[in-house]
């Protein structure tokens, strides 16, 4: 398991060129999404806001599509439809899925500077179950985790149960 984390640490800047520039980020956020998951799509505006709010603060974001048969064209179309401005990669062999230990889209995994997972789970509590949606989120798990990291603390909540479309096992 540890070696996988190191592999990820090494791979991350290569996967995401913007990370290679400038100072080492304090945290890296992988956001697992799908082109056709309605709950994941509902988060597109919040993902753009997150990037705007945190990118200047040494927090890096990467959209991950864990779908073996997905093409770059399909992803580009999805990004354009939802005005998403985050860097992405298609995780066809589920390397990142395994390294982050995620099961669902949307689900986020936050890696600290020494590559430990500091938070994994929901972005917020907008959805409490399938079809159960609050008017607005009352718990902002990902933002709280990032704010704690920026303060030099550990996130108070380190995992939440994601809700959305389950990632299929590879054939």
């Amino acid at each position: 398991m540890t070696s996988r984390f190191f592999a990820l640490l090494l791979a991350f800047p290569l996967l995401c060129p913007s990370l290679a520039q400038g100072a080492e980020p304090l945290a890296k956020v992988m956001v697992f999404v799908a082109v056709d998951c309605p709950i994941a799509n509902r988060y597109a505006p919040e993902l753009n806001r997150l990037r705007e709010d945190y990118v200047g603060k040494k927090i890096e974001f990467l959209l991950v599509y864990p779908e073996p048969s997905l093409t770059e064209n399909e992803v580009n179309q999805h990004l354009a439809d939802h005005a998403l401005t985050l860097p992405f990669m298609i995780d066809r062999r589920h390397r990142l899925v395994k390294q982050a230990g995620v099961t669902t889209t949307p689900e986020v995994a936050v890696f600290g500077a020494s590559d430990e997972i500091l938070y994994r789970g929901k972005i917020d509590n907008l959805f409490s179950d399938y079809g159960e949606r609050r008017r607005r989120a009352t718990e902002t798990y990902l933002r709280d985790a990032l704010d704690a990291i920026l303060r030099g603390d550990k996130p108070a909540i380190s995992t939440t149960d994601p809700i959305g479309c389950l990632i299929e096992e590879l054939p």
């Binding site: 056709d36 179950d129 399938y130 299929e168």
Partner: peptide, 27 residues
């Protein structure tokens, strides 16, 4: 509905989700 379910490949791509949402009778 958000994604098509008309053949093996489409159903297979969403199988775990289908199992979950039929299991709790959301769908």
């Amino acid at each position: 509905a958000p994604f098509p379910l008309t053949n093996y490949s489409e159903v297979s791509r969403k199988a775990r989700t289908i199992r979950r949402v039929t299991g709790d009778r959301y769908m």
